[in-house]
């Protein structure tokens, strides 16, 4: 079993879906995908198992880009262990974050 997989794609309602592990080796692809979208709004993180500072940078850069146009990312279904990382980094102050089932 490959435990290092990461996938980013568009969901049925136009939301961005991330699944697996967003580690330092996956960030370039994730950022390229997000930069290809004019205005990403909702990111469903139900399947995101792992993130570290390199992954946080992907969210930060995207947020800076779209905030310039007056928009903002909404991160939904964020698992507790991933939410903790966002919170430690103080990202709960600059992102709209909601957990699974909320």
């Amino acid at each position: 079993m490959n435990r290092q997989v990461f996938e980013i794609r568009l969901g049925t309602a136009g939301e961005v879906v991330m699944v697996g592990r967003l580690d330092a080796t996956q960030c370039e692809a994730a950022l390229r995908f997000l930069n290809g979208l004019a205005e990403p709004r909702v990111v469903d993180l139900a399947g995101l198992e792992y993130i570290a500072s390199a992954g946080l940078r992907v969210f930060l850069m995207t947020q800076k880009r779209i905030k310039a146009a007056g928009a903002g990312l909404k991160l939904i279904n964020v698992a507790p262990q991933v939410r903790d990382i966002f919170r430690y980094a103080g990202f709960d102050r600059i992102f709209d974050i909601s957990g699974g089932g909320a």
């Binding site: 570290a52 500072s53 940078r57 930060l60 800076k64 430690y88 980094a89 103080g90 102050r93 600059i94």
Partner: peptide
């Protein structure tokens, strides 16, 4: 500075900061 505004946020140093937190 994890309390900075979006515009002033930097990721540099965040990794080591997270490690120390955890």
């Amino acid at each position: 500075d994890v309390t900075a505004s979006l515009e002033e946020r930097r990721v540099g140093g965040l990794g080591v900061f997270l490690v120390r937190q955890m």
